[in-house]
């Protein structure tokens, strides 16, 4: 039973991790919270549903969700961020809030406000490992998350684009002086972030075999909490905080009841932030690059 809940918690945590990484890719580089990410996640879920409904294999559904998320994110960057990049940070944040409301509205009009559900046969079977079972879908979520995180880690750490992203995050002015083209990079960061959100949406909607246009707000808010708990100046904080929050949530529901779920999850967030205001992996402020 406990082991079973651990697996459930890790599965949920994996999705939070992906979504938190999506938030922190943009946050780390631009210092703005792209609120539309929560709705990219929701749209990703619908794309995943549509693909599975059309009898496409799961990897295709995942890639479709990622491409959808990346493309919408690119539009948001072009229309909602780039024209406002010299405005105070709250302005582009509000424009992303506007986009998130529009996206939710589009989803309600396209797919209705009632939850959509997948018939049971899509859920896949259960795999038996000794004394616990894991759903094939759960395993898929975990494996896909590990793969995606590895790809992002590789891009950020080892490639020329990733280094340029980090340089812009640490000192935008100097990075530009070195010939880094900040505009192209910002677009790339938005698209990478959007594709992660889309992937997370596909994974969670297929995992629960259900989706509503309102899923983005609830899960998105938790992902923001995960990012902050992990330390918003360090994008890898999400890798620790995601599973932690996922486990806390599932354990609470299993042993305490779902009525106190959010109380425990957000209480834990506040507690961690009181003890470590910079987040679990966050560095001190002085470690950050000078922003001129």
């Amino acid at each position: 039973m406990l082991l079973q809940q651990l697996v459930n918690g890790l599965t949920l945590g994996a999705v939070y991790t992906l979504l938190a990484l999506s938030f922190s890719l943009v946050m780390g580089i631009l210092g703005i919270l792209n609120l539309a990410i929560a709705e990219l996640f929701m749209i990703g879920g619908y794309i995943g549903f549509a693909a599975i409904g059309a009898n496409l294999p799961l990897p295709v559904a995942l890639v479709a969700g990622m491409i959808g998320g990346a493309l919408i994110s690119a539009v948001i960057e072009k229309l909602g961020y780039e024209p406002l990049r010299d405005a105070p940070v709250v302005t582009p944040m509000l424009s992303t809030l506007g986009f998130s409301i529009i996206l939710q509205n589009v989803a309600i009009n396209l797919w209705g406000s009632d939850p959509l559900q997948l018939p049971d046969q899509y859920l896949g079977g259960q795999l038996q490992f000794g004394w616990f079972t894991i759903g094939k879908m759960q395993l898929t979520v975990l494996v896909a998350t590990v793969l995606l995180v590895a790809i992002v880690a590789f891009i950020v750490q080892k490639t020329s684009t990733g280094r340029a992203l980090r340089a812009v995050a640490e000192n935008r002015e100097v990075a530009r002086l070195l010939g880094v083209s900040a505009n192209r990079l910002v677009l790339f960061a938005f698209m990478l972030s959007g594709s992660l959100a889309g992937a997370a949406g596909v994974l969670i909607s297929l995992h629960y075999a259900a989706i509503t246009p309102y899923v983005g707000v609830e899960v998105g808010l938790k992902a923001i909490a995960v990012m902050v708990v992990g330390g918003s100046t360090r994008i890898w904080g999400a890798l620790v905080a995601g599973p932690l929050i996922g486990l806390a949530e599932v354990m609470t529901v299993a042993y305490g009841g779902s009525q106190i779920r959010d109380f425990v999850v957000y209480g834990l967030m506040i507690l961690i932030l009181l003890l470590r205001p910079q987040g679990l992996l966050g560095g001190a402020q002085i470690d950050r690059g000078q922003r001129v």
Partner: peptide
Amino acid sequence: NIRLFPSMTVWEHLLVAQQ
């Protein structure tokens, strides 16, 4: 006042300068 990228390595500084 020195302006490096604090959490990047020396090697990375030399690569990022070659865009």
